[in-house]
Computed example of a mutant assay.
Amino acid sequence: MKSILAVILLFFSTAIFAQAQLPKDYFQKPLDVPLVLSGTFGELRSNHFHSGLDIKTQQRQGLNVIASAKGYVSRINIQHYGYGKALYVQHPNGYTTVYAHLKKFSPEIEAYVKKRQYANETYEIELFPKAGELPVEANELIAFSGNTGGSGGPHLHFEIRDGSQRPMNPKLFGINIEDNRAPIIDGLYAYPLDEEAHINNSRERQKINLTPLEDGSYIASEIDACGNIGFGISSVDQQDG
C-alpha cells in the first residue's frame, strides 16, 4: 500500500511541476472577439476526447483568425471532413498551435496553397512548408473563421500541442475564458468499497442529501460510515454564454 501511495504522490507531484512550467503569457487568444466556447478541452465525443477549444464566432463566418504567437506555418491540411481547412503553426518554444474549420487563409497562405492545388490537380491536400516559407508574427492575420469539414456550425477549433504533438489544455497556458457560473451538483453518492464497509447500516450505495448555499457551495447531510468508502458526484459545470 505504501508503494502505491508513493507512486500516486510522485505522479501528482510531476503533474503539478509540469503544469507550473507551462508558459502562461506566451500564447494569445486566436480571435479578436471575447472568447465564448461551444466545446471545451477533454469533452467526451462519440469516439474520442475533444482535443482543443471550440470557440464561438458569433454565429457567422469570416472573423479574423490571428497567430497566437510568433512562428511559422508548418502544416496545411485541407479535407472535406475532419478539420476542413486547417493551419498548424510551429513556435520557437517547441509548441504547435492548430486552427481548424477555417473558411480561407490569409492572402499569402491562400496563394501558396492554390499554387500547389493546381499543380497537383486536387482540392484536398496536405502540405508541410519549410521554416522560412511562411513565417508569421504574433497577432498576425493568418486565416478567416469558417464552418468547413466536420463542423456543426461556424466556430474556430483551437489547439495547443506539445513537442510530441500531444494536445494540451489551452486554458493551462493563460487562454482565459470568462466563467462566473458555479457548478451545479445533481447528486452526491457514497459507496462501500469492500465487504467490511457499510454506510448508514447498509452495504448499498447511499445518496447524500445536499443543501445549496447562496455562494454556490453545498452542505452535505451527515452519514454513519465504517470501512473503506468512496464518493461519486453527478454534476454540470456550464460557462458564461
Rank of each mutant, 00 (worst) to 15 (best):
I177H: 08
P183Q: 04
K24Y: 00
S235G: 11
G187Y: 01
D186Y: 10
I175L: 14
I160Q: 05
T211M: 06
L31M: 07
E159W: 13
E178T: 15
L63W: 02
I55S: 04
K103D: 15
K70N: 14
Q90K: 15
G94F: 09
L22V: 06
I223F: 00
I229Q: 05
T57P: 08
N93F: 11
A6W: 00
P129H: 05
K2R: 10
I208R: 07
F128G: 04
F12V: 11
P30M: 03
S74D: 03
F158I: 08
D215A: 11
Y191E: 12
Y72A: 04
I16W: 06
S74H: 00
M168G: 05
P183H: 10
K115N: 09
E214T: 07
P135Q: 07
E124S: 15
G42Q: 06
E133N: 09
E126T: 15
Q239R: 14
N77F: 11
D186T: 00
I208M: 02
P183W: 09
L5F: 09
F12Q: 03
G174D: 07
Y95S: 00
K29M: 06
E196T: 14
N93A: 12
P183N: 05
P34N: 10
K29N: 12
H157Y: 14
T57Q: 02
A119H: 08
I4M: 08
L193G: 01
A197E: 11
